[in-house]
Write a protein that binds this DNA or RNA. Structure first.
Lengths: 130, 130
DNA sequence: AATTAATTGTTATAATATAACATTATGTAA
DNA sequence: TTACATAATGTTATATTATAACAATTAATT
């Protein structure tokens, strides 16, 4: 069986919800909101989320245990992500800076090791909250 | 009462354990290992961890929900952290690169905003696992 | 000594995430 | 087109991570 290149019903339901949201959503918030669509258990949500993260449709904000849709058209795979997070209103914005991603992809550690996969979370105050 | 500038008993017990460990420790692993020292409840561990993170003695690896001691002498405050994480053996190394921290501290987003606080997690394979 | 603030201890519970297993659907190849 | 293999689903139960609430204690400041 080939690796699927389309979304299954549950994956589509979860993605639709996350894409409609202006803020990161938590797994159980998603669960609550998709119960009317027939998704009943946490595991159904987590499985959909896992897949969507894997294919880069959504990203996990690790410091918040929450998920947002990818807003970076070039981000086909979830491997190099950067976000700014407002510490007051919790607004999260995906950063797509060619300079930043180039710098990080080319960064070498002490051992000369490069990393194509990373997650960067900036914290501060957004425009509104400043 | 002044902000304490020393560690309390529980904080010291938790810090001692985390500093002795060569790998990130999870909160309940810590709890299990300090029960012989009189720490009985999760909250006692989480409170100590919170404080230790706040003063920069330890860092939380967000993608792993685990804690490691700070190995960066200049890191008095937990505000600008970078780690490499091996996806096979889960070895975590704190990166202290003047270049990297300078680049990130000076990075400006679309709105010209700078961020003095950030957390960066690189993923790849360590020397051994490569 | 009185006051204030931080920390502690304790019980209970909330929030986040996965294990295990039976079932159903879908692609591949004989 | 039937078997085979792989992937996704549904379901129940449970594991893991983290915090709420509140009473008690400790320590610095006035």
């Amino acid at each position: 069986m080939q690796k699927q290149n389309f979304l299954t019903k549950n994956q589509q339901i979860v993605l639709d919800l996350v894409e409609k949201s202006s803020e990161p959503l938590k797994a159980y918030t998603i669960l609550f909101n998709v119960q009317k669509k027939g998704i009943k258990a946490p595991l159904q949500v987590y499985r959909a989320l896992d897949k969507l993260v894997e294919i880069g449709k959504i990203h996990k904000i690790e410091s918040r245990n929450a998920f947002i849709a990818c807003h970076n058209s070039s981000c086909q795979v979830a491997k190099a992500t950067a976000f700014s997070i407002c510490e007051i209103c919790e607004k999260v914005t995906e950063i797509s800076s060619a300079g930043l991603s180039k710098y990080l992809a080319n960064f070498k550690d002490k051992d000369g090791m490069k990393y194509s996969k990373y997650n960067l979370e900036f914290f501060g105050l957004c425009k509104k909250c400043r």
